[in-house]
Design a protein around this nucleic acid. Structure first.
Length: 103
DNA sequence: CGTCTGACGATGC
DNA sequence: GGCATCGCCAGAC
């Protein structure tokens, strides 16, 4: 795990179904409290199999439609995530509370 | 080494 | 509460 890059992927891979994490939250978990944008970059280079659709903005807003072809909301709803009328995630219900910090 | 990129976050208006 | 701006970080070139 030499790179922050790989730690970010490890954390994202541990987000359970039915929960979501924010960019800033993940950044903090890997030791970069203000590295939200680094997480964005890391997800851009995310390997296949990584549930990057479970990473959203702190406000509950999803990624732009072209990123997941508009399927992000479907995938999340399929996992049990509920949405507000705004089209944003109900963060108070679904934001991931990590049981243990990933090293 | 300087510059650019990114799906953000906090702040200020 | 929504929008604009600045800040922030790491990897690619």
């Amino acid at each position: 795990m030499s790179g922050l890059f790989e730690r970010i992927h490890a954390v994202v891979a541990n987000i359970p179904e039915g929960s979501v994490a924010t960019y800033g939250q993940i950044a903090a978990m890997v030791g970069c409290p203000r590295g939200a944008r680094t997480v964005v970059w890391a997800l851009k280079c995310s390997p296949p199999g990584l549930p990057c659709h479970r990473v959203v903005a702190k406000s509950g807003a999803l990624a732009p439609p072209d990123i997941f072809g508009g399927a992000q909301r479907d995938m999340l709803e399929d996992e049990g995530v509920s949405f507000l009328p705004d089209g944003r995630i109900d963060m108070s219900r679904h934001q991931w509370l990590p049981p243990d910090i990933e090293i």
